[in-house]
């Protein structure tokens, strides 16, 4: 279907953002949250993920390729638009703008995050509680990671809202409004989980648990 290429690309972009990228985000946050129960808990959970069978296939097909497509095509989409929130300061228009701003920021953040953890692991570093505690001990990195977590949860929650419209799940204004409340809840819950995990890496008492 060559003449429908754009339709296919767009829908694929929308779908991949939720499945698998969004699902992976939730799973990643839940693993992070083990840090709240102490270093050994977190290390055990991280080790469990590392020792999943077909690890490389899972990483490539469930995480890297979908994420890469979503990021690159997303950048293209973001730069096609011309933000006009100054003229039209409506709630949805601001969400539209923030979705693009957080998207671009996340490309930078995730590239750095992957470099610092997964790529480092490929070169022999151990991805564990101490590694994260070490990274987050720098105030700049702490702010950067908190911003990254909030950008990710926002982008996912608001993306769910647009996903529902783009696939025609929420058609009426009322259903779209209810979906707005659902997406706000998703944002708050995931942000809580994500930030709580970050704080856990700062607690010296947890490092020895």
């Amino acid at each position: 279907m060559p003449q429908n290429q754009e339709f296919f690309n767009r829908r694929l972009h929308s779908l991949l953002g939720v499945i698998p990228v969004g699902v992976f985000l939730i799973q990643h946050f839940i693993i992070n949250h083990f840090a709240v129960y102490g270093a050994s808990s977190f290390n055990a959970a991280a080790h469990f993920m590392e020792s999943l069978p077909f690890r490389y296939a899972l990483e490539i097909f469930v995480i890297f390729l979908p994420l890469l497509y979503h990021a690159i095509y997303g950048l293209y989409i973001a730069f096609l638009g011309k933000s006009n929130t100054r003229r039209y300061g409506f709630f949805r228009n601001i969400m539209f703008m923030l979705q693009r701003v957080t998207g671009v920021f996340l490309v930078i953040f995730i590239a750095w995050h992957v470099w610092e953890t997964r790529v480092a692991a490929a070169f022999g570093a151990d991805v564990n509680y101490d590694m994260m505690a070490d990274i987050l001990s720098s105030p700049f990195m702490l702010v950067f990671y908190i911003a990254g977590v909030l950008a990710a949860t926002f982008h996912f929650a608001n993306g769910l809202w647009s996903f529902a419209v783009s696939w025609g799940l929420t058609v009426t204004p009322r259903s779209q409004k209810i979906m707005t409340y659902v997406s706000i809840t998703v944002f708050l819950v995931l942000s809580y989980i994500g930030i709580r995990a970050i704080i856990a890496f700062l607690d010296p008492a947890l490092a020895n648990m």
């Binding site: 767009r10 039209y88 949805r92 539209f96 703008m97 647009s162 783009s166």
Partner: peptide, 10 residues
């Protein structure tokens, strides 16, 4: 076509 819509709802 319509798939370019970004739902700004302006």
């Amino acid at each position: 076509g319509l798939s370019n819509c970004g739902n700004s709802q302006n």
